[in-house]
Amino acid sequence: MRVEMRVLAHAFNAAGPRAWLLWLGLALLLGGALRVAGVGRRWIPEWGAVIAVASGVALAAIGNAHTESPARVSRPETTGSVRITAPSDEATIAGGDTAVEVDVADFVLVTGTSRGVRPGYGHLHLMVDGILAPLSATPGAGRHDVCVPAGRHTITAVLVAEDHAGWGNEVDVTHSVAVTARTGEC
């Protein structure tokens, strides 16, 4: 019995608060149906059964309408870490072609693109203000020449999956530094 209650509680939590309407509606429907079948005659009058069934149908319909949503598929999480070691955060740099050094650990950088997603495998994306920098032939850790135009910018390194989409724990595999470039045109 304890196990059944746990399963029920899990189902309630997983479905969200709107699902309570659905569950309540189904409970009222069941109660009304039992009364019609002759159970609970001592406590529930005939009109009580009618109200229970009607309320149950209404609440179940409302609850069902609110809980139906497109299936959400969570992205898997990955191991790995990434860190921009140069330039440092809040550095003032010359601008233009800039050496950006990246450390990657516990993550295998691959060359091909695949729809199969394997935690721990993928690509390094290096960006200036969200715009991908063309990386050198070997998309690995180490030094990359990235063009940084004059002004204040954010350089971000992120580990993405083999399909080039982010991971469920993207915040754990992202590192950004803010820099100010004195000159430079890209």
Partner: peptide, 18 residues
């Protein structure tokens, strides 16, 4: 909630690129 690569851009979860 998933970061997306859109051609020359990578747009992180709940982020904007201009």
């Amino acid at each position: 909630e998933t970061g997306q690569t859109i051609g020359p851009y990578y747009v992180g979860p709940r982020s904007t690129v201009e």
